[in-house]
Write a protein that binds this DNA or RNA. Structure first.
Lengths: 155, 155
DNA sequence: GCAGATGGACAAGTAACTTGTCGAAGCCTA
DNA sequence: TAGGCTTCGACAAGTTACTTGTCCATCTGC
């Protein structure tokens, strides 16, 4: 992607947004690999943050990430394989397995967050901090609660 | 995705960008399906635009989209299946098969472009046209020619 | 006229999903 | 307290959009 498009400024804008995301994520990934977190993908980091923020079962994580619980369970399995989370039976509900972020997982979140912040700082330096904040505020407004048609169709 | 993240404003920004992209693409896809272009994915539309802009072989398309020529060939096969492109042997080079956008393909580009522009207009109405233009200009600056490490490793 | 680059095809593997089905466990209500 | 829905996690199989690797036909430059 990241190809100038011409003919539709709307399509260009979409590409710009995607390009921005990739730009950040690629940089962070490269640095993360250098710091011993090889093989980790952006999805994993975001999923880890969601787990830490309270999505401590596969089903709940699926709901938060808007994917099926099966997909969430697979993500958790990957995170477990990397040693970023572990699971234990829920004492109060035998159906559940509670997912917990391990110390190594917290380290990934810290390092990853710092790297994302680094990129953001560099961006702030290039266009000015207030400009970046305005950009973020506008983006937040534009993406908030868009029509949620096909949601909660899970199971 | 589209989950508030906390703890890293950099990570939040990345999510905001991805969310913005999805927000646009989802809307466009829904409308496209209603207009008889069911099954088409954003990649297809962007690939089609690249073909139309001159990437008329699988290898060249791969280069433009930064994917392998095999991946590009698969995308072309899908587009051909939908009737958006056709292929003919290149008279001047027997190795090549020239990809051409069909009338139906041009229609998709037109409709798709208009739908993207619609979303963009709605966004402009919400935050103001100059604000949106500024946002685009900043994004363009921030994503332009980032280090291109792993490129042209193709074949 | 031949070495090396290039284009496309075929094959197999992978990642990140999906749908569908299942049994075990919890919750709700009459 | 038993019956019936709901929810959780697991297993299986299918899909999509890629990847690597290999191959051969063809073009290009010296």
């Amino acid at each position: 992607m990241i190809v100038p498009m011409a003919q539709s400024s709307g399509a260009e804008l979409a590409l710009l947004l995607l390009g921005g995301f990739h730009s950040m994520v690629d940089e962070v990934n490269v640095e993360l690999a250098k710091r011993g977190h090889e093989g980790v993908r952006p999805v994993h980091e975001f999923a880890l943050r969601a787990v830490d923020a309270g999505a401590d079962t596969a089903s709940e994580l699926g709901r938060r990430l808007s994917v099926t619980k099966q997909a969430a369970a697979q993500t958790i399995a990957v995170l477990e394989g990397f040693g970023y989370v572990d699971r234990e039976p829920d004492p109060g509900d035998a159906r559940r397995k509670r997912v917990r972020v391990t110390p190594r997982g917290h380290e990934l979140m810290t390092v990853g967050g710092a790297l994302f912040d680094d990129v953001r700082s560099r961006w702030a330096a290039r266009i000015g901090p207030e400009q970046l904040e305005t950009l973020e505020a506008h983006l937040a407004r534009l993406t908030e609660r868009r029509s949620f048609t096909a949601e909660d169709l899970q199971d």
